[in-house]
Write a protein that binds this DNA or RNA. Structure first.
Lengths: 147, 147
DNA sequence: GGTAAAAAGTGGTTTTTAGTGGGTATAAGT
DNA sequence: ACTTATACCCACTAAAAACCACTTTTTACC
């Protein structure tokens, strides 16, 4: 579904033009109806076609909310989830609270991730590409991987 | 039901305007009758549509109250629970005791959490988003999750 | 390779709706 | 009865949505 990345810009009103190819995919798979929310592990946003979100949402809602980690995920993912629609020119208006969360400014990066997209501030994206090199345990599925 | 977050403000009389979309949902599901109470784990408030509260309340009341944790939950949740109604302009008056509990000042954050809403002081919310990194056990339901 | 046509991206304007503030009346409590 | 607090109402301001026009880039065809 979604692969590849694009530089995109947010205009002075907080609107973002979706690149044509991505837009076509979105229109096809969900009539341009999408849901944007917070990523819990990095300061970026997740963009789901509406049907994908409908699958994910109950799983999040069902997490045991007396557990701190689960509560954090719920708060962020449900708490920031906002349905968006394309305007007549194929743009979406990014809500203020999401802009704040992901520290979005003018220059953004839209990154395809198969069933969803990630939206980053360009500078945070570049920092992440340069710096992030996680240590810690590696699941078997990862060690077994051969690129 | 409720998702997404909004910046809201409390005016000099302690009133808070409910954002239009949220207001519509509230009017539809409970005629604008809601119950606001304390969250036991964080200094924020819970906002329930009245029917949701009617389901929850007996469960709280039935907790075994010789247990300290259960007693704490009962005292806070039942003790702060206040029915509220929207005024003609779609605003609610926030009771003083609830304002104190959640340290509400002018700038607030209203966060959708599916069947309920959370109401935070904006600064406490931002602190929580930035700082909270729960340790402790991670339930299987969480480790298995793929966003 | 050049030109024309279409599509995509960008910016601005207008209209409508939501949010804010305050004044007055009413009720409640002292 | 007087003071304080809450509800109701009206008017103003600000923000969002819809609409429209222009520039730039791409694509197709000559």
């Amino acid at each position: 579904m979604f692969t590849g990345s694009n530089n995109v810009t947010m205009d002075s009103k907080g609107r973002m033009a979706i690149p044509a190819k991505t837009r076509d995919t979105l229109v096809e798979c969900c009539g341009g109806r999408l849901v944007m929310t917070a990523h819990t592990e990095d300061r970026c946003l997740l963009v789901y076609p509406e049907p994908e979100w409908q699958e994910l949402q109950p799983k999040i809602a069902a997490l045991p909310n007396m557990n701190a980690k689960a509560r954090r995920i719920q708060r962020l993912v449900l708490g920031y989830a906002t349905p968006l629609e394309l305007d007549g020119n194929g743009r979406v208006l990014l809500p203020q609270t999401l802009r704040d969360y992901a520290q979005l400014e003018k220059k953004l990066m839209l990154v395809g991730q198969n069933n969803k997209l990630e939206l980053w501030s360009e500078s945070l994206w570049n920092n992440w590409v340069d710096q992030d090199d996680p240590d810690g345990d590696v699941p078997d599925a990862v060690s077994a991987l051969s690129l």
